[in-house]
């Protein structure tokens, strides 16, 4: 069995049951977000965004950069019960995004890139 993962990101927040960071201290801390390079994976592109406070990563998230300009019409005569609307990009504020699967390789590369922007990589 492959060795179980060196944790790319161990426990991101500093918090365990015994080591919680007081809310007040974090509330006063400036946080900055950094997005890593867009990485190609099997189904498109993805990139990792990290949130940094006091030189520590406090959150990590993934967004997708799909690249498929195909377009075609479908016959929708047989769609009586579904609601139909035009696809549009929303203004968004979300906790996470559901999308096509991406690999650890793409995730790691984009994460390193974001960490580079945040100056978190070991010199």
């Amino acid at each position: 069995m492959k060795k179980s993962v060196p944790l790319t990101v161990a426990v991101l927040a500093s918090a365990t049951a015994t080591g919680a960071v007081p809310a007040a201290s974090l509330a006063a801390t400036k946080t900055t977000k950094y997005t890593g390079a867009s990485e190609t994976y099997k189904y498109g592109k993805m990139s990792v965004t990290i949130t940094v406070a006091k030189k520590k990563m406090t959150a990590i998230s993934v967004s997708y950069d799909p690249t498929d300009p195909r377009s075609s019409q479908i016959d929708q005569a047989a769609l009586p019960t579904l609601w139909k609307e035009a696809l549009k990009a929303q203004g968004w504020d979300v906790h996470s995004v559901s999308g096509a699967s991406f690999t650890s390789g793409a995730f790691r590369q984009s994460l390193y890139s974001a960490m580079g922007h945040a100056d978190l990589l070991k010199k």
């Binding site: 944790l7 161990a10 974090l26 965004t49 968004w92």
Partner: peptide, 18 residues
């Protein structure tokens, strides 16, 4: 960075397992 990701918790456990 996209500005859209909301914070989820200040106290919890966060972890990425590959």
């Amino acid at each position: 960075a996209p500005s859209g990701f909301l914070p989820t918790t200040r106290h919890g456990l966060r972890h990425v397992e590959h």
